[in-house]
Design a protein around this nucleic acid. Structure first.
Length: 482
RNA sequence: GUCUCCAUCGUCUAGAGGCCUAGGACACCGGGUUCUCAUCCCGGCAACAUGGGUUCGAAUCCCAUUGGAGAUGCCA
C-alpha cells in the first residue's frame, strides 16, 4: 500500500470549531502514526461566506495546536494549488466530463426543489432538465443561459461501502438526490470539489465527521463515474453539546464556547484542549488520559475510534486544563497567567511572581484569576460575622480583644516576609496556648475581608506590604468596635 | 415524513462469549493533611435501554421494540 495521505479541509469561516479541530487532529494523528503526509486544503467555494483573514486563523490555530502540515497553500507539495477558489477551472472541466459521459446534466430550473412540493426525494426526479436532450441543453449553455450541473444518479441500484469506523453501510440509490456539482456561479459544491481534490491530491484516507456518512454513496458514485479508486473512509462520531433544557445536539454556539480561539481566550491551554478533544470519540484503550501530541501519535489507532456521539464536557476540560496548569513550571505559569490577571499598571504588578505562586495550584482556567485576587487591590466590604470560625475558635469578640496586640506585634517585624509574619502569629498563639488557627483566621479576615483567599495571612500580608496590611487591620478594629 | 447511524455510571470511556459481584477518569458526596481555600491522599455514590432468541454460559452475537443523533442546501 502506498503512503498514507490525509487532509484537513476547513472552510475559512474566521473561527475554528473544536469539532473541526478534532477532525484535523485525527487526520494528523493518522498520518503521523503511519509515517504519512498531512495536507491542508482551504475550501473556500462559498463566496457568500468569505471572511477576511480567515485563512490566517486556520494557520494560527493549527500552529498553536501543534498540527504541522506537510503540504498546503504555504507549502507546495506538487499537488497545488491548495485553495479551491484557485482551482475553479478544474472543477468545470471535470463536471463537463461527467456531462459528456452521462453521469451529470445541465439544470436550468433553479427552482426545481421549491416547486416540487412535499416529497423532496422526488424533487430531482421531477426536474425536467434530467430528461432534456443533450444537444439542446448544450445549446442553451452555449447561449449563456444560467445553469447548474447536477449529478445523475442511477436510482435503480443499491450502494454499499465500508467505513473504517462504522463498518459496512448500504443505501438504496433511490433516496439519493441529483445533487448539484457545479453552482450557478461556476463554483463547485463542497461535495464535488472534495472528490476531485481528494483524488488529485492522492488522499488515501478521508477523515471527516459522521454527518457525511449518508451522503458518502454520492461521493462513491462520482469516483466510479470517473473510474477512480475510492479512498478509505474514516467517519468520526459527532461532538454533541447539551443545551439549557438538557437536550443534546451537534455542538454549536448555543452550547457555549465552541471555537478554539474562544477557549484559549478564556484561559484554556492549547495543549489541554487538544488532549481533551483527542479523548472525545477515541480511546487509547488504557486508563491513561494525559498525553502529549507525540504520545497521542504513538498511541493512535483507528480501532480506538468510537461510533457513538460524545458530549462535550466543560467540567472535564476544566479538570484537564488544571492538570496542565499544575504541570507548568512556576515561571511559565506566571508568564501565561499574567495577561489574564488584569493587574498591569497597578501596585500588584511587581508582586506578580509572589501572587502567581499562590495562584498556581488554585487555577483551573486563567479567566478565573481576576476575581480570586481582586481583594488585594481593593478590600471588599465585609461583615464582622466573617470573624466567626468554629474550627479555629475565632469570633468577633476575641478578635476585637486580640487584634490590637497582634497589630503591635506585626508592626514590630523588621523584615516583612510571609514566614516572619506567620512566625509572629504562631508564637502569639503558643504563648496563649490557643490554636494557631485563631490568630491566623482573625488576621487573614482583617486584611482580606474574604472567607476564602489564595494563600494564608502571611502570604497575603507580604503581598499587601506592611503599611497597607496594618492599615487594613486598623480599619478592621474600627469596624469591630463600631 | 424518508433514509442512515448509534445505544455501558449524569458525562468521557474500558470491555471484542466465561477474567465482570462491569474497570478508569470527570462531576458529586464523605474523611485525612493544611494558617482559610486549593493542592495532595483515602473512601463512597453511580451504568450494561427493554423484550425475545443463539449458547453450558451474553454487556459482548442475532432479531424486534424504544430512545437518541445525523442527513435530506446553488453550507461545509
Amino acid at each position: 500500500m502506498s503512503e498514507v495521505r490525509t487532509r484537513f479541509a476547513p472552510s475559512p469561516t474566521g473561527f475554528m470549531h473544536v469539532g473541526n479541530l478534532r477532525t484535523a487532529l485525527y487526520a494528523w494523528l493518522l498520518a503521523r502514526s503511519e509515517g504519512g503526509k498531512f495536507i491542508l486544503r482551504i475550501e473556500d467555494t462559498d463566496q457568500a461566506r468569505y471572511v477576511e483573514n480567515a485563512v490566517e486563523v486556520i494557520y494560527a490555530t493549527l500552529k498553536s495546536a501543534g498540527l504541522s502540515h506537510d503540504e498546503g497553500p504555504d507549502k507546495d507539495g506538487g499537488y497545488g494549488p491548495y485553495i479551491q477558489s484557485e482551482r475553479k477551472t478544474l472543477y468545470r472541466e471535470y463536471a463537463e466530463k461527467l456531462v459528456a459521459s452521462g453521469h451529470a446534466y445541465y439544470c436550468f430550473c433553479g427552482k426545481c426543489e421549491e416547486e416540487s412540493g412535499d416529497d423532496i426525494h422526488e424533487a430531482s426526479e421531477l426536474c425536467p432538465c434530467a430528461g432534456m436532450d443533450a444537444a439542446a441543453a448544450a445549446e442553451k449553455v452555449a447561449a449563456g443561459c444560467p445553469h447548474v450541473i447536477r449529478q445523475r444518479i442511477d436510482r435503480s441500484k443499491v450502494s454499499t461501502f465500508t467505513d473504517a469506523v462504522f463498518g459496512e453501510i448500504q443505501i438504496e440509490n433511490k433516496v439519493l438526490d441529483d445533487q448539484i456539482l457545479l453552482k450557478q456561479d461556476n463554483m463547485p459544491t463542497y461535495n464535488f470539489a472534495n472528490v476531485i481534490d481528494d483524488h488529485l491530491m492522492h488522499i488515501t484516507h478521508v477523515v471527516r465527521g459522521s454527518e457525511y456518512l449518508s451522503s458518502t454513496p454520492k461521493y462513491n458514485l462520482l469516483y466510479q463515474a470517473f473510474g477512480w479508486e475510492v479512498p478509505t473512509y474514516v467517519h468520526l462520531p459527532l461532538i454533541m453539546g447539551r443545551d439549557a433544557e438538557g437536550n443534546v445536539s451537534k455542538l454549536s454556539k448555543r452550547h457555549g464556547s465552541v471555537s478554539f480561539e474562544n477557549l484559549v481566550s478564556e484561559g484554556y491551554l492549547p495543549e489541554a484542549i487538544v488532549n481533551y478533544i483527542a479523548l472525545l470519540g477515541w480511546s487509547p484503550k488504557s486508563d491513561r488520559e494525559i498525553f502529549t501530541l507525540d504520545e497521542l501519535a504513538q498511541a493512535f489507532r483507528i480501532s480506538g475510534l468510537n461510533k457513538s456521539p460524545a458530549v462535550f464536557d466543560y467540567d472535564k476540560l476544566r479538570w484537564m486544563n488544571s492538570e496542565y496548569i499544575k504541570a507548568l513550571p512556576p515561571e511559565k505559569f506566571a508568564e501565561a497567567a499574567l495577561p489574564f490577571a488584569g493587574i498591569t499598571g497597578t501596585v500588584l504588578e511587581e508582586k506578580w511572581e509572589l501572587i502567581a505562586g499562590l495562584l498556581h495550584n488554585r487555577t483551573e482556567v486563567f479567566s478565573e484569576i481576576p476575581e480570586k485576587i481582586s481583594f488585594l487591590l481593593t478590600q471588599p466590604e465585609y461583615q464582622v460575622e466573617l470573624f466567626n470560625h468554629k474550627k479555629s475558635k475565632s469570633d468577633p469578640e476575641n478578635t476585637r480583644a486580640d487584634l490590637p496586640e497582634l497589630r503591635e506585634l506585626l508592626a514590630g517585624i523588621s523584615e516583612w516576609k510571609a514566614e516572619n509574619i506567620s512566625e509572629v502569629l504562631s508564637s502569639f498563639a503558643a504563648v496563649r496556648e490557643i490554636k494557631a488557627g485563631r490568630p491566623m483566621w482573625q488576621v487573614r479576615i482583617a486584611v482580606s475581608g474574604c472567607a476564602v483567599t489564595p494563600g494564608g495571612p502571611g502570604e497575603i500580608m507580604e503581598i499587601l506590604g506592611k503599611e497597607e496590611s496594618l492599615a487594613r487591620i486598623d480599619r478592621a478594629l474600627i469596624k469591630l468596635n463600631a
